[in-house]
Nucleic acid binder design. Sequence first.
DNA 1: ATGACTGCAAACTCTTTGCACAACA
DNA 2: TGTTGTGCAAAGAGTTTGCAGTCAT
Lengths: 154, 154
Amino acid sequence: MTDTAAQDELLIARLRERGLRVTAQRLVLHRAIRGMSEHATAEEILTTASPLLPNLSLPTVYSTLELLEELDLVRRAPGIGSGPVLYEPRPEPHGHFACRRCGRVEDLDADVDLGPAVAAAGAARMAPDGAEVVVTGLCAQCAAESAAVSSPTP
Amino acid sequence: MTDTAAQDELLIARLRERGLRVTAQRLVLHRAIRGMSEHATAEEILTTASPLLPNLSLPTVYSTLELLEELDLVRRAPGIGSGPVLYEPRPEPHGHFACRRCGRVEDLDADVDLGPAVAAAGAARMAPDGAEVVVTGLCAQCAAESAAVSSPTP
DNA sequence: ATGACTGCAAACTCTTTGCACAACA
DNA sequence: TGTTGTGCAAAGAGTTTGCAGTCAT
């Protein structure tokens, strides 16, 4: 069984469990997202999936992403600021770096024990399902520009 | 010297350092934010500050918040999802819990060592200025509603 | 056959921009 | 007095909603 087929089966199983319908839109969008190496916006996901299924619409992308998140197949990445929401394939939660100046969000691998944070949330009657680190500051590009302003290269 | 006066002085000093002007709007907004116990949206900050300075406008709130963040007097809290941006007074970075269902963001105290994450960001040529934990899941209220659906109370 | 799902269009929320006037330095 | 900063109005980006028609079951 191919990897794609296995992913399809997982989606189909989760849909059936809940009595929801298996539609071409859901299959195609799920594949598109699982095929991405990094997070993407709803628009980018639409652009990726559109060639495979013409007439696919942005409202459908949003509603499908909401569904896939409910089914635990997609996550929204945290960010600071007001840009578009970033969605990412489920794989193990990982850290993110968010640039305070340009808003860019990048993945970050860091070995941190987040157990205490999850425990604290549980103690406050929340039902935690994941935890990650968000590091903020200036991204490489913004940091370089900032330095250039303070001390212009001769 | 009162606490408020000390905060004013800090703002004034940072503004002067950069040759920026000290205006009533900046003083009032800074006080409003420092006076809040939790994070707030731009609208909420406007509502809090308006009685003290009539005609204060939302664009001014946004531009002032951007400035205060640049001066390291205010931070934006991370969130998942598409709601309004949350601003919080500078105090030591702390964790947040974000509800996947309703989008609510709550403060969270957790004892986690984020040093490795900051180091990883620095190694990737970013200029990190802080790090925090974001725990996701369902907030107490959404978790209760979810449980009510699966097993209705008799 | 029937109800869930989709696509389209329009509404909505939040944030940013453009420009004339006000006010700090 | 010369800019910087503000307020107003309008535009813009991103997301959500309403509804008629389509399609999975």
